[in-house]
Design a protein around this nucleic acid. Structure first.
Length: 275
DNA sequence: CCTGAAACCTGTCTGC
DNA sequence: TGCAGACAGGTTTCAG
């Protein structure tokens, strides 16, 4: 049973669903908010007072997009941001449907539509702000954006950190989590403890290419995690190292190793990813 | 600047 | 079988 932790591809999948691009569920674009209800106080990060949610009534959804692992709703009079953290999920449903266990916030729209933020572990957060940059400004570049291999190489050399925690640092690169970082390092044949400023230009270019490949494959497969959250996502069937401790490497057959780096389980092939 | 640990949470797995 | 305890993981914050 794999964990259902949303990373860039899962968030992208959800954003496409909210825009109605996946078929099935209707788009929230252009719809007006009628009412917002908060069921778990601490889910609202900013502002701290739930009163601010009432101000969302009457506002229309103008854009929905992803930045790193954030879901951003650009409304007519404010921005609404979600971070799913460990266990968050967003679903769109008919307002006649019953609410569920672990539902933390619900937004009722016109036409009997409801957006619900469900989050068993309560780590997820919601922001209501005038300028989304206040929340997003610390994020590093988008891995699927315009960054060139040489720029990536330069960023790696501006720091001297272990690759695994550096790639997961959202201010260095926005969107990678534990799964895709392990998979990208395996694909690039780089050891997770390798120091960032020791990579050659060629290795840096290979790493960026590997990161983009695993993210694009994840998006193509509608996210990695389990079906009930991520709508048929099946990327976990193609993991090379993540949660494959002890199983044979798909390239060389050596058993996959698990170590802890920066408090995070880290999976790699000792033979393919030399130190 | 860098690393590591604690805190925030609860579903799930492990061991007796 | 049942229950206590360990574990996982994204992010922030603090200590060394």
């Amino acid at each position: 049973m794999s964990d259902a932790v949303p990373e860039l591809p899962e968030v992208e999948t959800i954003v496409r669903l909210l825009r109605g691009e996946n078929g099935g569920t209707p788009s929230l674009l252009g719809r007006s908010i009628r009412k917002v209800s908060l069921f778990w106080q601490r889910t609202l990060q900013t502002p701290s007072s739930p009163d601010a949610l009432e101000a969302l009534a009457g506002q229309r959804v103008e854009q929905i997009y992803r930045r790193g692992k954030f879901v951003v709703f650009h409304l007519t009079g404010a921005s609404l941001l979600f971070h799913l953290r460990m266990s968050g999920d967003l679903r769109v449903e008919d307002a006649s449907t019953g609410l569920q266990q672990h539902d933390r916030l619900a937004i009722w729209f016109e036409s009997s539509l409801r957006l619900v933020f469900n989050d068993p572990r309560k780590f997820g957060r919601v922001w209501v702000v005038q300028d989304p940059q206040v929340v997003l400004e610390k994020l590093g570049p988008e891995p699927l954006g315009e960054m060139s291999p040489h720029q990536f190489y330069q960023r790696l050399h501006q720091r001297r950190r272990q690759l695994k925690p550096l790639l997961m640092d959202q201010s260095f690169l926005a969107g990678l989590g534990n799964i895709y970082t392990d998979e990208a390092l395996f694909r690039a044949r780089l050891h997770p403890l390798r120091l960032s400023d020791t990579l050659t230009e060629v290795e840096a270019a290979l790493l960026l290419k590997a990161i983009r490949a695993v993210l694009e494959e994840g998006i193509r497969r509608n996210g990695a995690s389990i079906d009930w959250v991520y709508r048929g996502g099946e990327f976990q069937n193609t993991f090379c190292v993540y949660q494959r401790t002890g199983q044979p490497c798909r390239v060389c057959g050596e058993p996959i190793q698990r170590i802890v780096v920066g408090q995070r389980g880290t999976h790699f092939c000792v033979s393919c990813q030399k130190a």
